[in-house]
Nucleic acid binder design. Structure first.
Length: 221
DNA sequence: TTCCAGGCAATAC
DNA sequence: GTATTGCATGGA
């Protein structure tokens, strides 16, 4: 039997090319895209993040982007970078006012300040260890998508991420009705696809690009 | 002005 | 268990 989901992946990849997620604010020898103010994508490379700081940056971005446009998240990340708080020790040293002021552009800043605080304490205690999904989900403010994004892009665990774009594309193809749970959609992909890091990273990024090109808010309604 | 954006937790039923 | 609501800023 033909694997529909794998075939669809190859279609998207042929059409859009490798996306190079997750965007980082800086890394040598890569190019930026119009989706970003100054975040750097690294298409075709799966070695990043290569440092503890980059891993932390991705995790903080995953929290900040909850129901928020990436453009707004980048403003917050740039603010944190400028006050030398885009690494765990620097973040931990901020007071409440400094933290909230820095992340204000990304919205929900009171809640996100608490989420970032508790996650930073958790990250410091990790000491380079890769956390389990259950550990992440136990943290206040970390739900399934945020946990999976951290695992897939920061910790390089081949786990499938489901987000609003994924649901939008799958709804438009008629492959889901819209009421399916997060885990049921996740399991659909993880059962049909080989658990490969590059594949899972690219597939999610390609869903985002395809949704942005073909499933605009105007079309949805 | 209104609607929406790479969710999540708390609450209501 | 599923449905609704608050959270907040910035851009279209």
């Amino acid at each position: 039997m033909m694997n529909t989901l794998l075939a669809f992946y190859h279609q998207l990849l042929a059409r859009y090319g490798p996306q190079g997620w997750w965007p980082l604010l800086s890394h040598p020898g890569a190019s930026s895209t119009p989706n970003s103010i100054r975040g750097i994508y690294h298409p075709g490379h799966y070695d990043l993040p290569s440092t503890r700081e980059q891993r932390f940056e991705i995790c903080i971005g995953a929290i900040l982007t909850q129901n928020t446009a990436w453009r707004s998240v980048e403003k917050a990340l740039i603010n944190l970078l400028q006050i030398k708080a885009l690494h765990p020790e620097g973040l931990d040293a901020l007071n409440e006012t400094q933290l909230k002021e820095a992340i204000r552009p990304s919205g929900y800043f009171n809640q996100k300040a608490i989420k970032i605080r508790s996650f930073t304490a958790f990250f410091l205690a990790l000491e380079e260890r890769t956390p389990s999904r259950e550990e992440l989900l136990a943290l206040w403010g970390i739900g399934p998508e945020t946990a999976d994004s951290m695992l897939l892009y920061a910790f390089k665990v081949p786990t499938f991420v489901v987000d609003a774009y994924t649901r939008r594309v799958l709804s438009s193809t008629g492959w889901i009705s819209g009421t399916e749970s997060y885990d049921s959609i996740k399991n659909l992909f993880e059962k049909q696809l080989p658990h490969d890091l590059a594949l899972f990273q690219e597939y999610h990024a390609l869903f985002v690009e395809h949704a942005k090109q073909e499933c605009t808010s105007h079309d949805r309604r």
